[in-house]
């Protein structure tokens, strides 16, 4: 049983088709990345999964069936539009929201104390939420999402408003949650963040699936169009190389259509070049996305 299964959902608002046809399944204990540009239909898809919107078409199964009130307590959700009670103290606000998620007041208080210490917010616990910095509020949002120890965590744009230090902290937290068997769905338009974290991805564009599957497999599938080369001396001119750029301590050759890495390697061998490095360059998720969209349009 998949924690989340989405099958051919569609959702329109008036004449706007937010989601046209999206299908995917999320494995237990993985970080699943839902990617796409702004307006691709990611947030609407998440809201359909959470039963905040009814789909016009298609089916959704969450934790083994349709959404129920009981299941909502097993889900942690951090929406893109984040908000807390600005006039409440940080501690009281988190304890209140925790109790609404089914925690006892004492337990909620205890957990909030632990997380505030972990997130370096303990000294701010009596401050009103509106007195906290944006980054602190973002961390408070994350605490609110995981406070009740949910088995399914859905986070919309988790890295928005975070500085590099806190961004790294959130990444570490997500990895930690995955190691504890939590299932995480992460929606973002920041594709480079996904490369570090996600096991599997779904690329959405204009409300439709563009790419879906294991990230490494997808990257391998889209690889072969560039190689990383470093030689003892100067690199010769090789036919079939379309573009040359520097990449760390090597040169990245983007290959022309019809040229394979084997062709390039043979050409180098033929010229007796002493190679220190020859590696097939894996494309970035962004490059994959652009190519996938272009292929789809073609």
């Amino acid at each position: 049983m998949h924690p989340v299964e989405v099958s051919h959902i569609a959702k329109s608002f008036g004449s706007t088709r937010a989601v046209v046809d999206v299908s995917f399944a999320v494995e237990r204990g993985e970080i699943f990345g839902m990617l796409g540009p702004n307006g691709a239909g990611k947030t609407t898809t998440l809201r359909v999964i959470l039963d905040l919107f009814k789909p016009d078409r298609g089916t959704v199964s969450v934790l083994g069936g349709p959404m129920t009130e009981q299941k909502k307590e097993r889900i942690g959700y951090m929406p893109e539009e984040r908000g807390l009670y600005p006039d409440l103290s940080l501690e009281r606000c988190l304890v209140y929201l925790g109790t609404l998620k089914g925690l006892g007041a004492g337990e909620a208080r205890q957990r909030v104390g632990g997380y505030l210490a972990q997130f370096d917010l303990a000294e701010h616990r009596k401050k009103k939420v509106k007195e906290l910095s944006k980054g602190m509020q973002q961390k408070a949002q994350i605490i609110n999402t995981i406070l009740h120890d949910p088995e399914l965590i859905i986070i919309d744009e988790p890295f928005a408003s975070l500085d590099p230090v806190n961004m790294q902290m959130v990444k570490d937290l997500l990895r930690d949650l995955r190691s504890r068997g939590k299932t995480i769905i992460m929606s973002t338009h920041q594709m480079h963040q996904v490369e570090e974290l996600c096991d599997r991805i779904l690329l959405i564009d204009e409300g439709r699936n563009v790419l879906y599957g294991n990230l490494d497999e997808i990257r391998r599938q889209y690889s072969g169009h560039a190689v990383l080369v470093r030689a003892a001396g100067e690199l010769p001119v090789v036919p079939g190389v379309e573009q040359v750029s520097l990449h760390n301590n090597a040169v990245k050759w983007t290959l022309a259509q019809g040229t394979t890495p084997q062709d390039v390697l043979q050409a180098l061998m033929a010229q007796n070049v002493i190679l220190e490095k020859f590696e097939i360059a894996l494309p970035t998720v962004e490059e994959i996305f652009i190519r996938a969209v272009e292929e789809g349009e073609a």
Binding site: L50, L52, I75, Y77, P79, E81, G83, L100
Partner: peptide
Amino acid sequence: KNQVMEVLMLSVT
């Protein structure tokens, strides 16, 4: 205004 509604809808009926 405080954008709490979406979180609340996942917590209470």
